[in-house]
Amino acid sequence: MADQRYVALLRGINVGGKNPVPMAELRELFGELGHDDVRTHIQSGNVLFSTGTARDSLEDDIEAALEERYGTRLVVVVRSLRQLRSVVRSAPDGFGDRPDEFHSDAVFLKSPLTAAKAMKVVQTREGVDEAWPGTGVIYFQRLSAARTKSRMSKIVGTPEYALMTIRSWSTTTKLLELLEADA
């Protein structure tokens, strides 16, 4: 199998001093797992890499290695270049186009969680929040001026949240740009 380019999205590291993971160590760990061309983007757990490993085992393999190394179970969502390109291209019309007015996020879903199931726990407040289901993602946008009234934080206490990781739209599009440049 030819190497493919992927991004691993780790949830819950380097946030508010919790689960500190140096990016150099993270790159080293991915190399030890046999992945190539490993690079990270910002401190919140975005790892770009190439591998010939089958896609269906990547998330579990990376999660197990992280737990062994750091003693904490971390959620990992992996998307191929093709999948991330589809997430960006399939966004609702105008999504992320007005960053001064709206905070726009991609809520990435780990299987077996589907967008249909995730949408059942995503609450919106009229005039503040909007959410749209996608393939393996929920697009969530909230009015910046009223973000303290947003209901996005309501998903955190749900069982479904254990299978989600959130990236800002600007980070999501930057990750795609980096993957495409590397391909």
Rank of each mutant, 00 (worst) to 15 (best):
4 Q>W: 03
148 T>D: 14
115 A>G: 08
118 A>M: 13
154 K>E: 15
119 M>F: 04
80 S>R: 11
137 V>L: 07
15 V>W: 00
43 Q>Y: 10
38 V>A: 15
59 E>R: 01
155 I>K: 01
17 G>Y: 02
44 S>D: 04
88 V>Y: 10
39 R>H: 11
25 E>P: 04
71 G>W: 04
38 V>G: 12
89 R>M: 12
130 E>H: 07
32 E>G: 07
27 R>G: 09
168 S>R: 14
159 P>M: 11
89 R>T: 14
109 L>P: 05
59 E>W: 07
121 V>K: 11
33 L>G: 14
170 S>F: 08
50 S>T: 08
84 L>P: 00
163 L>D: 09
144 S>C: 08
100 D>H: 13
42 I>S: 10
20 P>T: 11
10 L>Q: 04
147 R>Q: 07
173 T>F: 01
89 R>L: 14
154 K>Y: 12
11 R>Y: 10
35 H>P: 04
160 E>T: 03
145 A>I: 13
146 A>H: 14
136 G>A: 06
7 V>F: 13
120 K>D: 13
161 Y>F: 15
19 N>T: 09
9 L>R: 01
103 H>R: 05
163 L>K: 01
177 E>Q: 15
50 S>D: 15
15 V>D: 03
100 D>S: 14
32 E>V: 10
54 A>V: 08
157 G>W: 02
55 R>Q: 09
34 G>L: 11
91 A>F: 03
54 A>T: 02
57 S>H: 04
182 D>S: 14
96 G>P: 04
11 R>W: 09
